[in-house]
Design a protein around this nucleic acid. Structure first.
Lengths: 108, 108
DNA sequence: ACTTACGGTAAGTGATGACTAACGCAATGG
DNA sequence: CCATTGCGTTAGTCATCACTTACCGTAAGT
């Protein structure tokens, strides 16, 4: 439950989000990812470590290379967590609109 | 699009997540939120400022108090962003399973 | 008007984390 | 084998941020 902790923290960093978004285009090796980013390859490697710990990506060896891809697990946990607040959020919003109407046309 | 930036960063902090989760129980004033948390009231006020900037909460004056509640806007943006990766994530996972099967039973 | 309750803001501090450079290790190719 | 390629890890630095204390503005009560 509280394991969405690392997932939000992982996607909070701009660089890490770029890495994740590029993986949205398909599986990529570390070097490929680093090539299109303004940071060094070790930096990308460290970011991937965080994303993996958060369950957002998975890796698989491919010879001397290492291919990463998006893992639906972490993604699913985040969606589930957000959905817990979706209903109550809409209800709160509806109540707020109701309150605004009462202010404009107060009951006589 | 890239405005989900602040939303993920906002929910990355544990204390801020606690504030947000308590707002999931319904609208609360700043003092009420701070009462159940291990941090000072100014700290909660600063956290609410961040959550508000991320579009995750909205506030409304109530006399001398100030009531906060969850805002569906930021929540919706996050859901939309995550959904962009959901399909490709499942496809990548399916491809990985396929790859594992090929390793166990290599084609003759 | 004075007082009390409620909250936002400013300044300062300690801790976390993102980054680079340097190194070590495994896998491929000549 | 020896060289090369591709990644992960370590050590160290610099910036960011969460927190507290103190202060100021505002709204209601007497």
């Amino acid at each position: 439950m509280a394991r969405t902790q690392g997932a939000f923290a992982a996607l909070a960093d701009p660089t890490r989000r770029q890495v994740f978004e590029r993986l949205g285009e398909g599986p990529r090796a570390v070097g490929e990812l680093a090539a299109g980013l303004p940071v060094s390859r070790p930096a990308v490697s460290q970011h991937l470590k965080v994303l993996k710990a958060a369950g957002l990506v998975s890796d698989r060896p491919d010879g001397a290379r290492r291919v990463y891809q998006i893992d639906p697990q972490g993604l699913g946990q985040m969606r589930a967590w957000l959905d817990r607040f979706w209903d109550v959020a809409l209800a709160a919003f509806a109540a707020e609109v109701e309150r605004d109407n009462d202010e404009e046309e107060p009951p006589e």
